[in-house]
Amino acid sequence: MTGQYIIRRLLIMLPVLLGVSLIIFIMVRIIPGDPSMVMAGPHATKDQVEQIRTQLGLDRHPVSQYFIFIGNLFRGDLGTSTRTSLPVTKEIMARLPNTLLLALASILIATVLGVLTGIIAGVKQNSKFDYLSMLVALFGLSMPVFWLGLMLMLLFSIHLGWLPAVGAESFKHLILPAITLGANSMAIIARMTRSSMLEVIRLDYIRTARAKGLKEKLVISRHALKNALIPVVTVIGLQTGTLLGGAVLTEIVFAWPGVGRLLVEAILARDYPVVQGVVLLVATMFIFVNLVVDILYAYLDPRIRYQ
């Protein structure tokens, strides 16, 4: 039954993936001017422009252009960077591990701290901890990632000298960027967990659990938590998206050699093949994360599993 569910989710995913590729395909082709000239870059020779024109199939019908585009995608051919003349896949692969490491560390921090804070705040509603943590969460929600990064750098690297400011050489280099990138999501996850917890605690089955004589700790951990976490899982999934986007800014602040920085460099240099490749990759990753979330959802909620 769970297998069927996963297959159904995969089938829903496909049109979205196709849609994403179509949008990117169209966007690259509505760049003002001649796409092949723009993509070849300002210093390209006439031959290079022609080469790109044939490579993209721009001389053919738009529909067959799209099929060529998809065909190239499946062969892992994302074109060539106009800046470095390297294959786009190579450029991306060199940077991807760094971004994955950063994103993973951030979502881990955000999830663990966010869920914990949310639970305690929800269970102890209107306590000092509740007010304080929700105030901090609101701050975290409102803080620009890049500014938070700079302020943390100012305090921990420049004033206290505890952590390195820029670069990606060691574990120590990961700490500040991961906190910076995770702060926003942590705030959102904490708020969501709290309100979900508050909602669940009022429900009838919690009263049933109490009427059985369960200790409050068990009522929360066994009866409330799993139910309360169901909507939180969705939020965490959506947050990975925000995180992947926020990585762009964080990587710039901390000179972290990841995909996000590659994207900004590519945008500034009008290196369209790279822009197209990175956007496709990140969107695909996000779609897969959501698939994982859907599966996790089914694990948490038997009502979905046995549909």
């Binding site: 009838d204 089955y205 009263r207 049933t208 659990a209 066994r222 009866h223 799993k226 139910n227």
Partner: peptide, 13 residues
């Protein structure tokens, strides 16, 4: 024993 057997039982256990 409560009124609503639907909501009085925990759906995930």
């Amino acid at each position: 024993i409560f009124q609503e057997p639907m909501t009085s039982l925990n759906p995930v256990l």
